[in-house]
Structures are given as structure tokens and as C-alpha cells.
Design a protein around this nucleic acid. Structure first.
Lengths: 345, 345
DNA sequence: TTGTATGCGTTATCAC
DNA sequence: GTGATAACGCATACAA
């Protein structure tokens, strides 16, 4: 009862109702030139009246792909990825595509399942932030797909990568602290299996060594706040306590701040801290958090544009794959109230 | 060159390669009982070898809907909706569905376009937080669709609604302040065209009147931080300045806090404030923000379960529509450090 | 156990 | 300007 189905009224139903052939109806709705303007209007009116909705599955079965743009990310509650989702969603909608969102939680199996689903749905393009230990099968499936890697890039993938200049970002943060007289600086970041974890750590080490400082106060782990909370608590319980902390991940920044609260350390009085990323609330914390701001908008837009989405069944357009084209976007250090000159003796 | 297409290898290609008929191959892959175990293995092995990927569009063209679950929300950077997206995404993936995310930004036209796209894609279900002034066409399209309304419910929609007990939430917040001796309490929330804006405002007014207090210090507007920033700045510039502020929306909470900073008002010393929603960072702001915590997880899970997603082409299952079934979930006031007894004379 | 034929809803290629 | 027909890739009822 009720409505039989979605809009079970098909092109043929319409045609029957109008005593026309389905081809004419099809052309009329597509505004094809070879159809009498009069019939066109008649058909379109009736279509509206009967609530006809074209079946997109049937439509795209003829082309080489469906109207789907896949976005595969680890965490949507992370403001960085949420912003990416928004940008990419806009870009997709503009071109008549769905945004198929997959949230992996950094689980390689979930990632594999979702990528497979994307293939099955014949997604026109995929933007992916690959997990650290992506399954071989995931990589295999991805090759030959119109994809872009987003923040991390995986050795086993040859797709163009849209990256942050992470080394420069963390480097700037570290240098900022050094210039404020800090000598004992700790770093907490994601482990080196993740490409950006590696580079951020390298950025820290490079600047520390460059100034002849000890780059040993480091904790690397998974991109979860809980890790940072524990790690930072440990790092700051050591004697002598570091006078400053660099965080190399937005999710870890939350955990780091929680740790500081737990230890009753005020910033910047007791310790200076530089975060990563820049959700709006970073401005509201204390006198504002000094942080490495990322060009999210630019990255999202660029990643979408790389995919060259079209509805036509042309596709390939080359499938260049000249091995690992990588574009790096420069972050910017924003100095706010969580860092101050070092006043320890 | 490269790979010809996605996995242009079809069932018939496979069949030809194996010198079998496509039906046998189809059955073998579906693990149908009526096929010799030996051939089954042979087929499956070859399928893997050739990188066969079933064409989901063709598959679902036979059923009544595609493997798509639509989520239509105003803002993905809002932690509440981000969490919903995560929950719903999990639920969808478990049942073999895509999450098609649509971010309307509260734009009725965007909403209309996205809903249409969902219809065209024959989405199996839709979870939607309708915009205040949804287009008639949007409402028309939605009727007859397997949908659930999420936080707001629209008069023109008859789908089951999964709501917050907003009146109780804001009521509790207000009462908390009254019990702390506050008399001049201001409220900032979303305008009354939005169902939850209406109820939250009602909740505030009810408690104020119940205590014989003036419920006139109110600003209602669109759910954007900028609005709250301006409105709160205005509300708190009046003399005598209110000693407490209730915020009736998570996005507005951000703007409200920005306003307090702009006015150099400390909380809870200069003013008490109660927020709405509870992203992790509410704990990090000052001594923690007193807030109305929402049962996001439960709501998300319940909304997904209501849709009764199945892959089978049964669908309807009743299409009950007994007019506006609404389930309300109770929020909880979490008292933290942003509220204190009133100490003004 | 396997192969043949048909249909899902479109669009495109032909004739008329 | 319009209508019949084929094709897209898959699943299934039916024949062998």
C-alpha cells in the first residue's frame, strides 16, 4: 500500500500513459533537439505530475562509472577532515556527484571493505588518506582507480598525493620555541609508519640538531588523544621537566591539553605548547593556542580538482601515473598565547 | 592505456575465459548450492586472478533500491553531526551500505538538490535534519521515501522523528542557574522557525516564568557562530548586565564564547554560561564548560535502526506513516566550571 | 549440474 | 519528428 515504491513510475510507464514510445519520452526529458517542442512540454508536464524520477542506476550502468566520489578518511570528528569533507562535498555536488563518506578509524580492514564497496559502486573518483598498514588487497584494488592520496601517502600507491609540508610545519613550531630560549623541548606525534608522522618527527629532529639540542624527548604512537594524554603525562613527569612541547597531530593536541590539565600545568606560565591544525576552538583555549595552521581549504579543493570528475564515459584521460606526483601545501605558524619566552634557569 | 577501465572485466568475460556460461559463473560467485564445488573453486580463483569486480549498479538495478544510505545534515564541522555521521556510517557499513553524505549548510536549495540526487540514486533510506524553510518540492520528494528526521522535525513531513527533549535540556540549564541565585539570565538560540529552536526557547521561558523572572533577554537567529557573537555582545552590553547566559545550540556556543572573550568577561567570575552539546574540547575551556550533554550515540544508532535497512527488495514493510511518530531522547546537564553562584547585589 | 532466455530502466542507433 | 530494437551487466526462471 502507500506508495508502491520509491517512484516506481518508469520511463515506459510514462510512455504508456502518454501513448508514446519510451524513446520519445526519453528524448523529450533530455531536451533533445529532434522532438517537437509541443510534445516536449506535454511529456515534461506529465512527468512532473506523475512524480517521475529517473533511475540513476540504470542511467549510469551505461557509462563507465557511477555518480559517486569516495572520500576515505580516518576520523570525521577531527576538524581537519570534517572541513575536507565539506569542501569535497561541495565540489562533488557542483559536478553532480554524491559524496560517499567512509570513516575508517584507521582500521585497515574497514578501509579494505569500504574501498571494495567503492569499486563495486564504480566510483568516479576516490580521495583517500590511507591507513598506515593498508592491506595488500586494498592497494591492489586501488591501482587503476582514479584516486588521490590526501594527507598521508603510502609507498604502495602511485596516485598523486596532496600533502602538507609537514617537515616545515613542525620545524617552524620548534624553531619558534628555540628562538624563545627553550632548550628542553619535547615532541609528541604519530608513529613513523605513517608518512606524515615520519616527516613531522624529522622536522622536529632537524631543527633541534641544527641548534645542537637534544631531540630525544619524544613519544610516537597512534593518532588517538588517549595516547597523547598518557605520553605527555609521562614526558612531563621526567626531571628536569621540558619547558616546551610540540605536538605533531591535531587529534594528539587534544590529548596533550588534557594531560596538561591533569598535571595542573598552566600554559604558557608552566609550559609552552604548540598544537597542530587549527579548529576554531583553539582560539578559545586560554589566551589562544599557538599552532601550525594547515591550508585545508586549498588542499581539499585541489584534491577534488585533481580527480577531473566528469560524467561522460571518457574517464582514463591518460591514467598517467608518472609515479608519485606529490604536491605539498605550506602550513603557517600562528603565534597566540600558549607560548612564551623560557624563564627557567 | 594502463588499466582499460575500472575492472572492465565482466561476468561474460569471465565466462568466456572459462568456457562456461555466465549463469554458471554468476551462481558460482554467489555460492549457489546448485553448482559443482569443483567449478566453484575454479571460477572463484579465476575471478580473483582477473581482478573481477561485480558491477554494483547492474546488481542493484534489479532490486528496488541501491546500496545507499543518505545522511542530510546542516554542518559536518559541528561535533554533534560529525558524531552522528560516524555512528550512521558504521551502521551503514555493517549492513553493506554506502553513507552518502550531504552537507546543506542550511541552504534549502542545496538540500533540495541533494535529496533529489538521493532519489535518483534510489537510496534505501535517508536520515535528514530538515532546513527551516525546506522547499515544497523537497517535502514532496521525501514523502514515500524511507526516511527519518533527526534533530529537527518539519511540519510538512510525516516521517518518524528522532528528537532531543530540548525543552527539558534548556530547562535544566536555566533552572541550574536560577538555583544558583541568578535572576537576570539571558538566552541566545536559533530562531523559532526551526523546531528545536522553538522548543529550546520555550524551555527557557517556561522555567523563567515559573520562577517569576523576566524572560525577555533573548536573541534568536540563524545557527551560525557569528550570529551568537554579535547577539551576545549586544545582550551583555545592556545595563544592568545579565549575570548568566544560556546558549541553545552548539554552534552558537562557539560564538558566545568568542563574544565573552571580546568583552573580556571571564567565566564564571564575571558571568556564568551554560553551553549546548558536548564536544571534547568543552572540557578544556577554562575550568570546563557547564553544558547540556546530548545522547548522540543513542540517537544516531536509533535513527539508523528505524530505517530497517535490508538489501532484499522487500522494502515498504508497511510504510506505516501513522503521522509524526516522535521519539525524544533526554539530554543531561553536566555541571563544570563555567557556572557559579550569583554574587551580584 | 549446466546452459538458454528474459528482464531490470536507460540511452543510442537505426529505420520510418 | 517518431517508433522499434539493441545494448549496458547482472540475476533468475526454466529448459536440457
Amino acid at each position: 500500500m502507500g506508495t508502491p515504491d520509491h517512484g516506481a513510475v518508469t520511463l515506459r510507464d510514462l510512455a504508456a500513459d502518454l501513448a508514446l514510445s519510451h524513446s520519445t519520452v526519453s528524448r523529450a526529458l533530455a531536451d533533445h533537439p529532434n522532438v517537437k517542442p509541443e510534445t516536449k512540454l506535454r511529456v515534461q508536464a506529465r512527468a512532473r505530475a506523475l512524480g517521475y524520477v529517473p533511475n540513476g542506476l540504470a542511467q549510469s550502468m551505461r557509462g563507465s562509472h557511477g555518480p559517486v566520489l569516495g572520500l576515505v578518511i580516518p576520523d570525521i570528528r577531527n576538524d581537519f577532515y570534517a572541513t575536507v569533507a565539506q569542501i569535497v562535498g561541495d565540489a562533488a555536488a557542483e559536478r553532480g556527484f554524491h559524496l560517499a563518506l567512509s570513516i575508517t578509524g584507521d582500521d585497515p580492514d574497514r578501509e579494505m571493505g569500504d574501498v571494495r564497496a567503492l569499486l563495486v559502486s564504480r566510483a568516479a573518483g576516490v580521495i583517500i588518506t590511507p591507513t598506515a598498514n593498508a592491506r595488500r588487497e586494498t592497494l591492489a584494488m586501488l591501482r587503476g582507480v582514479n584516486a588521490t592520496q590526501l594527507v598521508r601517502c603510502h609507498d604502495g600507491l602511485e596516485h598523486e598525493a596532496v600533502l602538507i609540508d609537514d617537515q616545515a610545519g613542525v620545524g617552524a613550531a620548534t624553531r619558534h620555541l628555540v628562538h624563545h630560549g627553550h632548550r628542553q623541548i619535547a615532541y609528541v606525534g604519530t608513529h613513523r609508519e605513517i608518512s606524515c608522522g615520519r616527516e613531522r618527527h624529522d622536522g622536529f629532529c632537524a631543527v633541534m640538531r641544527e641548534h645542537g639540542l637534544d631531540a630525544g624527548r619524544v613519544a610516537l604512537g597512534p593518532p588517538r588523544p588517549e595516547f597523547a594524554q598518557h605520553a605527555v603525562t609521562a614526558l612531563l613527569s621526567a626531571q628536569p621537566r621540558p619547558s616546551a612541547l610540540v605536538v605533531g597531530s591535531s587529534s594528539l593536541t587534544i590529548g596533550a591539553l588534557q594531560a596538561l590539565r591533569g598535571l595542573s600545568l598552566r600554559w604558557p606560565q608552566d609550559i609552552s605548547i604548540v598544537g597542530y591544525g587549527d579548529p576554531v576552538w583553539f582560539r578559545l583555549i586560554g589566551d589562544g593556542l599557538t599552532t601550525v595552521q594547515l591550508p585545508v581549504q586549498d588542499m581539499g579543493r585541489y584534491a577534488a580538482s585533481v580527480l577531473q570528475l566528469r560524467f561522460e564515459s571518457d574517464a582514463q584521460s591518460g591514467a598517467v601515473a608518472l609515479g608519485q606526483v606529490a604536491t605539498r601545501f605550506a602550513p603557517a605558524l600562528v603565534v597566540r598565547g600558549s607560548t612564551a619566552p623560557c624563564h627557567s634557569k
